[in-house]
């Protein structure tokens, strides 16, 4: 009788342990997948920023050419834009990219102030189309950044909060950097509407 009860007890314990183990494993899988999903969303959001940044880089040579036709002697400002662009193109990593891009935004802002002095240029249809394109790309970068930062915020909160932080620690999920343009360079940009 007694041994039978012990067997039953051990068996029950075993079943209990197995059930708990299965639940834990399922939870780990679920949490891991959740983190991966968040991580991928961050990556997707970053890809969107990347697309728009590339688009801006592509537009700039066109813009510089058009402006040159009317205001070719404004060399220093034009060169500044070209230099900032090539820096931005070669930049890698979120932090470095953000810095290079805000330099570029600053240079573009100064160029646009300059353009105000050339009515001929401002009347050029080509330039106007380019201006809308550039302004919109600027907006899109802004909105993509906004979305990216929102996603990073969600992701970072997730990997820091209990209990998902355990999974994040085991599988090496690290916090992602925000894409901030709000540094010195951007604040220097005069307010202009493209």
């Amino acid at each position: 009788m007694e041994s039978g009860g012990a067997i039953l007890g051990i068996g029950g314990l075993m079943i209990g342990i197995i059930i708990v183990a299965v639940i834990i494993i399922l939870w780990v899988i679920g949490a891991y997948n959740g983190l991966i999903r968040f991580f991928n969303e961050v990556k997707n959001a970053w890809a969107q920023i990347d697309v728009q940044l590339k688009r801006r880089h592509d537009l700039i040579p066109n813009l510089v050419e058009t402006v040159k036709g009317y205001a070719g002697h404004e060399k220093s400002t034009l060169e500044e834009v070209v230099k900032a662009r090539s820096q931005a193109v070669t930049a890698s990593g979120v932090q470095e990219q953000a810095q290079a891009e805000s330099m570029l935004s600053g240079a573009l802002g100064r160029l646009m102030v300059l353009v105000e002095q050339y009515p001929d240029l401002k009347a050029n249809q080509n330039f106007l189309a380019l201006q809308e394109e550039l302004a919109s790309t600027e907006n899109k970068i802004g909105f993509a950044r906004q979305f990216y930062n929102d996603q990073v915020m969600k992701y970072n909160t997730k990997i820091q909060s209990i209990p998902t932080n355990i999974i994040a620690g085991i599988f090496n999920f690290s916090a992602q950097a925000f894409f901030e343009l709000e540094n010195k360079a951007e604040r220097e940009v005069p307010k202009v509407q493209f």
């Binding site: 959001a45 189309a129 919109s136 907006n139 899109k140 909105f143 979305f147």
Partner: peptide, 15 residues
């Protein structure tokens, strides 16, 4: 172009 751009911008902003 402007309408198109605005729709594109909002598509990006909303994800």
């Amino acid at each position: 172009p402007q309408l198109w751009n605005v729709v594109e911008e909002m598509t990006i902003a909303s994800g």
